[in-house]
Lab assay of single mutants.
Amino acid sequence: LGPKYVGLWDFKSRTDEELSFRAGDVFHVARKEEQWWWATLLDEAGGAVAQGYVPHNYLAERE
């Protein structure tokens, strides 16, 4: 699936296409579209919880 990303700060969605998340949440990014990335929010087991657009500057690649 490629690298995983972690949320740096809490983010509250403003549209139906955006995905709310908390700092520390883990994502798989499917598409990078300039300022907004289409991402899947993952649970602790790595299963998909939700999908939506997230601001790229709120995520960091997980080491």
Rank of each mutant, 00 (worst) to 15 (best):
A48L: 09
R22W: 09
W36C: 05
N57A: 07
F21D: 00
D16W: 08
T15G: 12
R14K: 11
G47R: 15
Y53D: 01
A50E: 06
S20M: 03
D25T: 06
E17I: 11
F11S: 02
F11M: 02
T15L: 09
V54K: 02
L1H: 13
W36T: 05
D43H: 03
K4F: 15
R62M: 15
L1A: 13
S13K: 11
V54I: 03
Q35L: 14
A23C: 07
K32S: 07
A60E: 12
L19A: 01
G2C: 14
V6C: 09
E33A: 07
A30I: 15
R31L: 07
F11D: 03
R14H: 12
V29K: 00
E17A: 11
D43P: 00
P3A: 11
R62S: 13
V54S: 03
E44V: 08
R14C: 11
A50C: 08
L1D: 13
S20F: 02
V29F: 02
Q51A: 12
R31I: 09
S20Q: 04
A39T: 03
A60F: 09
Q51T: 14
E63R: 09
E63G: 12
S13C: 08
E44C: 10
Y53C: 05
G46R: 03
A45L: 12
G46H: 04
F27V: 03
E18V: 14
W37T: 01
G46K: 04
D16S: 12
A50K: 10
W36K: 09
L1Y: 12
G52V: 03
L1T: 12
D43E: 03
A30C: 11
D10K: 04
D25W: 05
A23S: 07
W9G: 04
H28R: 09
Y58W: 06
K32T: 09
V6M: 06
V26M: 13
E34C: 12
S20N: 05
G52N: 03
Q51I: 09
L41V: 04
G24A: 01
G7T: 04
V29R: 00
G7E: 01
A30D: 14
D25G: 04
W36S: 08
R31Y: 13
K12M: 13
D16F: 09
S20A: 05
L8K: 10
Y58K: 04
G46Y: 05
L59R: 04
H56N: 11
A60D: 06
G52W: 07
E34K: 09
T40A: 06
D10R: 04
A50Q: 08
V6G: 01
V54D: 01
F21Y: 00
D10P: 06
A50P: 01
D10C: 09
G2N: 12
E18I: 10
